[in-house]
Design a protein around this nucleic acid. Structure first.
Lengths: 127, 127
DNA sequence: AAAGAAATACGAAACTCTTCGTTGACAATA
DNA sequence: TATTGTCAACGAAGAGTTTCGTATTTCTTT
């Protein structure tokens, strides 16, 4: 009961909105989503209801317009998704995944520096 | 017609076998898969047929037992999957993804060194 | 209190994914 | 040539995903 399933594509779109906006009504989420890809209001509502059942989001019903909140923080979900991809396509090799990530997207010099700092920190711990 | 869809979980399991073994019959793929998770022979067959329709694999029918081959090399599929995840969950930020990958899995010192080399190479080009 | 609006709940349809039982083709062999 | 075993093809069922139309509830305004 405590485990939360991997979000589907449509669910992830909704989670992104909730992470950015914080607690939001269906209308607010829908308006954001419909800006990029027009869709029906009830479609977003239904998604959020299913996500509530799955435990992906929680719902505050104290107001007339219910407020939805992502159950897990963005970082945790990202870590879950990366770990999942690692197992499914990279035989668990993190370095391979990093290799592909950096070769598939031109990272900015600033980003590369960030990663370098991260490496320094990690190697500092490994002693 | 030229674009190949993102492989599903079950499809990825099959692709992993094909990448490791090279051209294989249904029986060969099935035996590998069933070792970890017992499943019916026709299940694997049907998957391969669907994957052929989708263009994920190609089929050599010259022999009685058809030979299946992954259409894209492992590297290319990995790049596609990482790029996809980047867009869906990381707003395109490669450094964020790398951060999550490394913090979710304890990379070995050797792997960290590999990544460092990659960074050197990339920064060399960015001038 | 009635009418109108805004929001949620319900149900269903279309589609995909995954699995497997059954059928039919083919080949080796007795 | 009849039998047996191996393989691909087909169809379908069950679950999950995504979408949306309709109904119901609830609040607000008159």
């Amino acid at each position: 009961m405590a485990d939360i399933p991997r979000p589907t594509d449509a669910e992830l779109s909704i989670l992104r909105v909730l992470w950015r906006r914080g607690p939001s009504t269906v209308k607010e989420v829908h308006d954001e989503l419909a800006r990029r890809a027009p869709t029906g209001y009830t479609t977003t509502l239904k998604q959020l209801q299913i996500m509530t059942e799955k435990g992906l989001v929680t719902r505050d019903e104290s107001q007339r317009a219910h407020l939805y909140v992502a159950r897990l923080p963005e970082e945790q979900t990202q870590t879950q998704l990366v770990g999942d991809l690692l197992d499914r396509a990279f035989e668990g090799s993190a370095s391979r995944l990093v290799l592909r990530a950096l070769s598939s997207r031109p990272a900015t010099p600033g980003e590369l520096a960030e990663i370098r700092e991260l490496l320094d920190r990690l190697e500092g711990d490994t002693k």
